[in-house]
Design a protein around this nucleic acid. Structure first.
Length: 470
RNA sequence: GCUCGCAUAGUGUAGUGGCCCAUCAUGAAGCCCUCUCGAGGCUUCGACCCGGGUUCAAAUCCCGGUGCGAGCACCA
């Protein structure tokens, strides 16, 4: 029989491979600063699966680097709160790698004892030669006992110093992929850790720490960027040595947002400390704090990433896509207000009520605003001409009222009668443009998202308006 | 250089051999709406990277090419 199948479009995220029972996922940022837009993909994807499949979401702080990207003590707390804000629920469990060091040491010693790891005392440059030449470094020949001895020297203050020794996982120096050849698992760092100080000297690198912790936590699925594909391959080799089973792994491709180029957490941290930015929620920054401050709803961010999905394709998305999701979240509750930039005074000539009531939203019940007219309105200089004052009357360019009802198709403009001076800050990439103008009097408290008619959505802040988006 | 990955309209996606002269969203253009450059409704435009192969049949499988991206850190 010829059966006509329905063409059904898949909605939401693709089905997760593997077993759907007892799913354990993790989101593992480096707490060297609060979360950024870039982190939000991993968080949304992992938490959405965890929620859909009634699984667990682990928030894990990968804070084992005290040198290149040292942890920021305040970020641990901030990130936990940001996770709850974005996901709508808190992480089921929080793991801090720097509290779990004894486990990493224990498995490192096991690896050394069982002969699938060794202490390498070559310099990074020297080892590069071996890696490129597919030849073994002499350190690889050490017996387990000798390795343990060197390991103890790594852990001792008067033993090896940073850069003088690392622990490597034995793979195969002839592996076609150079990235996998006897990769480094632990190294010496003497900078004190901001959370726990100088308790440890030998710290694991990501590939080792993450692999061990995923096993310890029974993580079932790892969903991460495809830049970590070789990390998966390295970790699988380690899992073979330990005879563990590696989780299902899914990748996403690189995302470029045109409006947010060139920010790194370390750089932002430096710039904030130097006063270039006012803080982590400076309107020009691509952080989650900034997006929250700017009135971007967590649901909008979630819908945005879910729509993009999990393809391994590298993409470039305009922020307009995120904004369109946000518009649908905020429009129904955003009262309308008029904000007139570059105002020009117009004296109304003709009959008109001295008091008008105007709806705060064209379709939603957001109440009405009462406006007292004393014969003068302000419109934007650019709008000057024969226009219709929205919800009021048609006028000619000298202010003569030609009709109360709309009489023709002349342009509709917004206007302010008894406004107050205000300013609107507009983030434009790394710049912040400020527009002065007259804002209609209103009763809305700080934090309200309003729609400035014909301009865009804005949030009311203590000292002015901040544009959400158009 | 070595290794790995990806390739559908301007953008983002659906699609795992016949439902596909290809889905949905967004965009652009035009129209509608007692009245925003908002929201809503309608119409139109617009794509399977290239070349071979397998097959009765390929966007879908295989090979080659090209393009783009990533890893080869004592960062994550």
């Amino acid at each position: 029989m010829l059966e006509k199948k329905e063409h059904v479009r898949r909605e939401g995220l693709p089905e997760l491979p593997g077993d759907h029972k007892g799913v354990v996922l993790r989101f593992a940022p480096n707490p060297n600063g609060p979360l950024s837009f870039g982190h939000s993909r991993g968080l949304v994807v992992n938490s959405t699966y965890a929620k859909q499949l009634s699984g667990k979401l682990i928030l894990r702080f990968d804070d084992t680097d005290t040198t290149v990207k040292p942890p920021l003590v305040s970020a641990y707390d901030t990130i936990a709160k940001e996770v709850e804000w974005l996901c709508g629920f808190p992480a089921d469990k929080i793991i801090i790698a720097s509290d779990r060091m004894e486990f990493y040491h224990q498995f490192a010693e096991q690896a050394l004892n069982e002969g699938f790891a060794y202490v390498c005392t070559c310099t990074a440059e020297a080892f590069r030669e071996f890696r490129v030449g597919k030849t073994c470094c002499p350190c690889r020949e050490r017996e387990a006992e000798e390795n343990i001895q060197h390991w103890q020297e790594m852990n001792s203050e008067d033993g090896y110093q940073p850069g003088q020794a690392v622990v490597r996982i034995k793979t195969d120096m002839t592996l076609p992929n150079p990235a996998l050849r006897d990769w480094p698992a632990l190294r010496i760092q003497t900078n004190p850790h901001p959370r726990i100080g100088n308790v440890w000297r030998v710290w694991p690198l990501l590939d080792f720490q993450s692999a061990v912790e995923d096993h310890l936590q029974n993580v079932t699925h790892i969903i991460r960027g495809k830049d970590l594909m070789d990390s998966t391959r390295k970790q699988k080799l380690l899992y073979q040595h330990f005879a563990w089973q590696y989780p299902e792994t899914i990748y996403w491709g690189r995302v470029k947002v045109h409006e947010f180029g060139g920010f790194s957490t370390s750089q932002m941290r430096k710039d904030i400390e130097e006063g270039i930015y006012s803080g982590w929620d400076d309107p020009r920054l691509p952080t989650l704090s900034t997006l929250a401050r700017r009135g971007i709803k967590p649901e909008a961010l979630r819908n945005f990433w879910i729509e993009i999905g999990l393809s391994q394709k590298d993409i470039a998305v305009p922020l307009a896509t995120l904004y369109s999701h946000n518009t649908s979240m905020i429009d129904a509750t955003a009262p309308r207000l008029a904000f007139v930039r570059n105002p020009i005074r117009i004296e109304l000539k003709g009959e008109i009520d001295s008091e008008v009531m105007i709806r705060s939203h064209p379709t939603e019940e957001l109440g009405e605003r009462k406006i007292n007219l004393d014969g003068v309105v302000y419109i934007e200089t650019e709008d000057h001409g024969d226009v219709r004052l929205k919800d009021l009357c048609d006028i000619s360019s000298n202010g003569t009222i030609t009709s109360i009802d709309r009489s023709d198709s002349r342009p509709i403009v917004h206007w302010v009668a008894n406004g107050k001076e205000n300013r609107l800050s507009i983030p434009e990439g790394k710049e912040l443009r400020v527009e002065e103008g007259l804002l209609e009097s209103h009763p809305h408290p700080i934090g309200t998202i309003v729609q400035l008619e014909r301009i865009g959505y804005a949030i009311i802040e203590e000292d002015g308006l901040l544009l959400v988006h158009e």
